[in-house]
Design a binder for these strands. Structure first.
Lengths: 201, 201
DNA sequence: GCGCTAATTGACCGGCCGGCCAGTTAGCGC
DNA sequence: GCGCTAACTGGCCGGCCGGTCAATTAGCGC
């Protein structure tokens, strides 16, 4: 900003802008964020934001791309290290997904904002992920280790949506009477879910 | 707007503003809505909005209050007409809730926006609702008709969150490979859920 | 009918929004 | 070192945002 330390590092500048932008967009959503505020947060001039990203809209896209890229690679890694299909593995996948969301609350909110915008530019990536997961479920069904009378995609959807909503709407239902902690809820959800997808002997 | 039909009907005016505001807020969220646009949609001058509601913020509160009031009374009515506690009734309650959300997509989005804002000014009403539902579950558990090893509030939460997320994030997962229709998903969710909450004989 | 209240209008405002541009300068290739 | 590219600055802009206000008038109580 002022005359001190005139070192230039465009990579760092881009990173600083992206980081500050992600924080603000996650917090307030696209239209509530002001570029002036963002510039202050990133310790950068407003013009610099335009120089590196073109417009507020393009910056928003860049932020989403980066976050969903992270989400996608993390999930893909989890899927790939999954071993022999069986019910226990499904359980631990749900746990892993739940904990991933808990550790990445920003991603959850970013998802939520984009859902509300009707934006589905991340759905190619997500479809891949869900497709792979559903295929894994199908294999497990074929081995008789999961109920075969349920659409595999729906099995994935049920646990993904429950975990997502738990964190998206946390501010809302955390005050519900009798509601337990993250872990207590996950425990109870797994009781229902696992019992529901496992075949009766 | 112009000189024709100089009839005044403040109630109708308020209603027109509220209706247009709800539509826009539902669509775009609070900060993306412009009062000028809203005035045009409601066929009303901008000043009239301020006259009747004070400020954009207060109008937003009024819109939320009205919508949540509607939601609350509808749900309370459903709860009260519920009869003898048993598992079949839980099933039909889930179905009713799911169909209510499908018929009221605006409410779902309004909920979503307020969740993201961290606003929980509707939580007293909601807590009542959840409390009543959980109590009903507890009664059913005591009769041995539902598994007793699960927190009743969590049972409510699981189905509420799944239904909510289904509609909140519809634009997102409707393109997932293998995903079925509303009814097909509900069917599969109920298979999992009912099996999960029913005691093994 | 008369007068008072409040619904309604349209002109207007200060502020700030996203974006632009002319000018400066750091840093890299040569 | 030299020059060129692009990173970076600060001032600026048009537009429109939410909000105000004075003036007008419909409608209701009496």
């Amino acid at each position: 900003m002022n005359q001190r330390t005139q070192i230039r590092d465009p990579e760092l500048t881009r990173a600083r802008i992206l980081e500050a932008a992600e924080a603000l967009f996650v917090e307030q959503g696209f239209s509530a964020v002001k570029l002036s505020e963002l510039a202050r947060a990133a310790e950068v001039t407003k013009s610099l934001i335009h120089h590196h990203f073109g417009s507020k809209e393009q910056l928003w896209e860049a932020v989403k791309d980066r976050a969903f890229e992270r989400y996608f690679t993390a999930q893909m890694a989890m899927l790939e290290e999954a071993g022999e299909p069986d019910a226990a593995l499904l359980r631990s996948s749900v746990e892993a997904y739940f904990h991933f969301l808990r550790e990445n609350p920003g991603v959850v909110r970013l998802f939520a904002w984009t859902h509300l915008e009707g934006d589905n530019h991340c759905s190619e990536l997500d479809s891949q992920l869900v497709g792979a997961g559903a295929e894994w479920v199908r294999q497990t069904q074929l081995r008789g280790l999961l109920r075969a009378d349920i659409n595999p995609t729906h099995i994935i959807a049920v646990f993904v949506m429950t975990c997502t909503q738990w964190f998206e709407a946390k501010c809302h239902h955390q005050h519900w009477p009798g509601m337990g902690s993250d872990e207590a809820f996950l425990e109870d959800f797994l009781k229902i879910f696992m019992e529901g997808v496992t075949p009766r002997e």
